[in-house]
Structure formats: structure tokens, C-alpha cells
Design a protein around this nucleic acid. Structure first.
Lengths: 221, 221
DNA sequence: GCATGTGAAGGAATTCACAGCA
DNA sequence: TGCTGTGAATTCCTTCACATGC
């Protein structure tokens, strides 16, 4: 369907379509707005946000234009309003809970990392296969055995974070999908199969590191 | 400059332009080719690769078309040749060495992760600010103090991996840039400033997790 | 017949240029 | 004047359709 069609809907206040790339940048805008608000800025311009994030002002204005009038011409954007608006769109206006599966080095780093809180994200349950880890508490969360995953109390848990070895990733995903999880962040290499309505975001560190050499040394643009 | 222009160059064997999105997928193709080769497949079709990666055959063929004739019509791609070709383009045909700065939980996970080797990537040096960690050996690498970073022996080191807290990231980056590092993989939130010729890839886990709720269907269980 | 390779079409994202408003 | 908001132009990416060659 056309951009124009959705633009028309937005004017009527009932649109909820936002380009994929814009959605990808929304968390960046949220972080920038929170940081600049923390520095005491009541208002920010697209220029200031752009400088902060290494983007361009017109891209930011275009992005913001998808969700209605937000700024004041000649002045800028109200920082507080910006934070609220983006949180609402990202559905971060209520705290979102996640279950973590795999409490190895990466998993425990995630459990103990406090930086998610700022965005209304919490890890409220953790599972591991290794019995040596089960029972321990990390970041305020007691680790349970994966065998209990199938009977997980999933009420209020929206997302799953997968930090298990590649070979068990798909199995774990299938299990938590049955528990009703609707979004997955996977750190396992490899393609995760899930129903279309379930969003899967994969962070494959090796893949990112592997494309870095491509850009080394002088290369014609 | 036009696609057509570069296509013409490629035919002459001197082209080296590849679309950004294609470069992003090249490591995926490399991984798939290595995996399917490991399963004993001498030849793979674009269909098989697509199934393996969750992509479409025509996208893969288009991507491959940017770097010259590679497949055999009616047959497919020679797996071995595919691996070599992609490694060469990604400049992974020789082992690439990286320096790691920040050996916290995430950093030590990276140090001990063996999966990079497969792609010709190695972490050959590690630095941390915490004196309790300095001197220890992880993943075969002895940890040095960040004060020694400025005098790092950077010969043969192409890339830097930044896993330090947000507030020290830019400082660390500036230091290793002076040592001649040309590519950076950063796990620190926030925008990293670097000269244009230096490629910076940022993995911001919180940003990825924060956009996941956007995709949750409004129907609650 | 079968799978690649590629112009052309279609679609999406970014940039531009400037109108609109405080 | 200064900064937002947005159609139009541009650039970039993906999909399609089919020619090509084993």
C-alpha cells in the first residue's frame, strides 16, 4: 500500500504505519532525547539530535513526520514530549519483561547489565542447561533449569532473549514460542524459524566483525 | 556514479564496487557456504542458500552477480569457489587480527569465543582498566593495562573491538585510531566519532531490544 | 529441463528545496 | 529569522521476468 494512503490515515489520527528503517532509529532517538534531557535540555532541534547521533537533521525531521506534529516551528522539539511519544510508539510506555535463556558469559553479562531499565526493559526470568548455574542468582534473577522452560509462567512476559549455543537455539525458540512469547532477540548464529507474526531480531557478532575487514585501507568510494 | 558504470568495470575485471546491503549479507553467505560444505555439499543452488538463510534465491543471485560469473547455469555454485570468492572480497583471505579493549563480561565472552577463527578473525591483544584483571590470560591472550594502549605494537592489527563502558569509549577509540587501527566494532552505546576513512560498526544491544516491543501484536494472552 | 545472470520494473529510503509558522 | 514539516526528486535496494547456457 502507498505511503500516501498511510499519510492520509495519520492525519486522521488512526495511522500506525512507520517505515522499517525509521523504527530501527526510534530507539536511538529515545536514547538521545533521554540523554539531552538529562543534560537539562527542555527543547532540542533536529540539528542537535543529528549532531548527537551522527545523522542528518532532515532525516530526523522526516522520521518524526511519520507520527504527526511533534515540534514547534522556529523552536524545536519538547524533549519530554519526544520521550513520551517515542516510548508510546515503541510500546515502551509500560515495562516490558523478557525471559533469558542461556546464562553463559554473554547471558550473564545481559543479566547484570542495568542499562535496559532506562528503556523500560527488564529480564525477569533466566534458564540454563548447566546444573552448576541453576539456583544461582544474577542481577536479582534466580536461574532455573531449561527443563522447566516448557512450563514457564509466561504471563506478563513478552520477549525472549536467546544466548545459547547455535545447536540448541531453534529448539529453545520453539519452546518459548509455545509459551506465547511474541518477540525474540537472538545472539545465536544462524537463521531462526518462527511464525510470521513473531518478530525475530538476530545479533550475530561474528557476522558484523567479519564484514569489517572489507572496509580496511583505501578503497574507492 | 552509476551502477552501469561499475558493472562495465566489473566485466573488465577491475571493479570493486558492491552495494552496501550486499556487503552486509556477504558474511551470511560465507557462513552458509561453510556450513553446507561441512555437510558435504560440493555444489549449492541459490535456492538452497536461500532456504538456509531465510532469504530469496533472486536476491542471492543478484548479490553474487556483482562480483562476476561464479555459478554454472543449470547446476549451481561450487561451494569451495564460493567460500574463496567471498573471503577474498571481504578481505578475509588472510587472517585479520583485532585488539580488544575492555575485558568485562562481554569482553571476556568475546575473548573466549572460538567462533571467529572460522572466518579468519583473531583477537591477539586485550586491554583493561581494572588492575585485578591485568596479567590474567583468557582465550590465550594476556590482558594488559589500558595505560599501555597508547604504545601498543599495532603492526598486523587491523581492527579494534570496544567493550568498555559508554563514558570511556570515545577516549579509547581516539587512542587506538592513533595506533593506526582502521576498523572498529563497538559495543558501547552512543555515537563514535572517527575519520571518514575508518569504518565504525556499532552493536548496541539495548537499542535492538528496545525496538522489539514495537512488533508485539496488541493481542494479549 | 534446470538454475544462473541480468536488464527493467517496482518499491523503499534518503535528500532536497522550500512552504509554513512561531 | 529560525526551525519544523513535507511534497518532489533522487538514490538505493529488491523483485520480476526471461534470456542464457549447461
Amino acid at each position: 500500500m502507498s505511503t500516501r494512503f498511510y499519510r492520509a490515515l495519520r492525519v486522521l489520527g488512526i495511522a500506525d504505519w512507520i517505515p522499517e528503517e525509521t523504527v530501527r532509529r526510534l530507539p536511538l532517538y529515545l536514547r538521545a532525547a533521554l540523554e539531552l534531557a538529562g543534560q537539562g535540555a527542555d527543547r532540542v532541534s533536529s540539528q542537535r539530535l543529528a549532531d548527537h547521533l551522527g545523522l542528518t537533521p532532515w532525516l530526523i525531521r522526516k522520521d518524526f513526520s511519520y507520527f504527526g506534529d511533534l515540534g514547534t516551528r522556529g523552536v524545536g522539539y519538547d524533549t519530554e514530549a519526544l520521550v513520551c511519544r517515542i516510548k508510546k510508539i515503541l510500546r515502551l510506555d509500560v515495562t516490558r519483561n523478557a525471559v533469558l535463556v542461556g546464562v553463559g558469559r554473554l547471558g550473564s553479562a545481559l543479566l547484570e547489565y542495568g542499562g535496559f531499565r532506562r528503556y523500560g526493559l527488564r529480564i525477569v526470568a533466566a534458564y540454563d542447561r548447566d546444573r552448576a548455574r541453576v539456583g544461582k542468582t544474577l542481577g536479582g534473577v534466580r536461574i532455573k533449569h531449561v527443563d522447566q522452560l516448557a512450563t514457564m509462567e509466561s504471563r506478563g512476559i513478552d520477549m525472549g532473549i536467546i544466548a545459547v549455543p547455535e545447536e540448541s537455539a531453534q529448539e529453545v525458540v520453539s519452546t518459548i514460542l509455545e509459551a506465547g512469547i511474541q518477540g525474540i532477540l537472538s545472539f545465536s548464529p544462524g537463521h531462526i524459524v518462527a511464525p510470521k507474526k513473531v518478530k525475530v531480531i538476530t545479533i550475530d557478532i561474528a557476522m558484523d566483525l567479519a564484514r569489517l575487514p572489507y572496509y580496511l585501507s583505501s578503497r574507492r568510494k
